[in-house]
């Protein structure tokens, strides 16, 4: 039985819990992670969408930053979506109050597409997927620069919107808001590896 934790400080936590439960089936359980000490007990983690400034502040205040870094260095998988993609990066462009966790060798542009008016849905071609993936971008960030260790999985025009580095998978969009579970399956194959 796997135990997957969803970082539950702010954002669309319940949507991630539901989506992960459906993806896992009887292979494991999903719990909300709200305080220090709960991260090391998990086999995999989800960093949800939300406001990266708010989640960043709460991770620091809650003493969870070190635990997250340790979690990744022990080879356990993380699925980071939207705000999560910002948080796992190593550099954030511009004047930002977010402290990146440095879990991936990426530079992130936080609101690359602009305000909510520019939020969009699109059919995405994803490396390794046979058919397009319907992706939901909400005030989405993009990866504007990356190190050699990072594998690009999808782009919108020239903008990188999905990538992985070792056990960390990051998406600028929201797999928890749609029914397509292929990214969850990708996360689970890392879990079972």
């Amino acid at each position: 039985m796997y135990k997957i934790g969803v970082i539950a400080l702010q954002g669309d936590v319940s949507e991630h819990v539901d989506a992960m439960r459906r993806a896992l089936g009887d292979k494991g359980i999903v719990v909300e992670v709200r305080k220090a000490g709960e991260i090391p007990e998990c086999d995999g983690l989800v960093i949800p969408g939300g406001e990266s400034t708010t989640i960043s502040t709460q991770l620091e205040k809650g003493g969870m930053v070190g635990e997250l870094k340790d979690f990744v260095s022990r080879g356990k998988p993380i699925l980071a979506t939207c705000a999560g993609l910002v948080l796992v990066s190593s550099t954030i462009e511009g004047d930002s109050r977010v402290k990146p966790l440095g879990l991936m060798d990426t530079t992130v542009d936080r609101n690359a597409f602009g305000s909510q008016k520019a939020s969009f849905e699109a059919d995405l071609a994803v490396e390794g997927f046979e058919t397009p993936y319907r992706a939901v971008f909400i005030r989405a960030p993009v990866i504007s620069d990356l190190g050699r260790a990072v594998q690009v999985l999808a782009r919108v025009e020239d903008k990188i919107v999905a990538a992985r580095q070792g056990n960390v998978l990051c998406l600028a969009f929201h797999p928890e808001l749609t029914e397509d579970r292929r990214f969850h399956q990708m996360f689970m194959s890392e879990l079972e590896a």
Partner: peptide, 8 residues
């Protein structure tokens, strides 16, 4: 979806 990101 935008509203859901404000939760909590």
């Amino acid at each position: 979806g935008f509203a859901k990101m404000q939760k909590g």
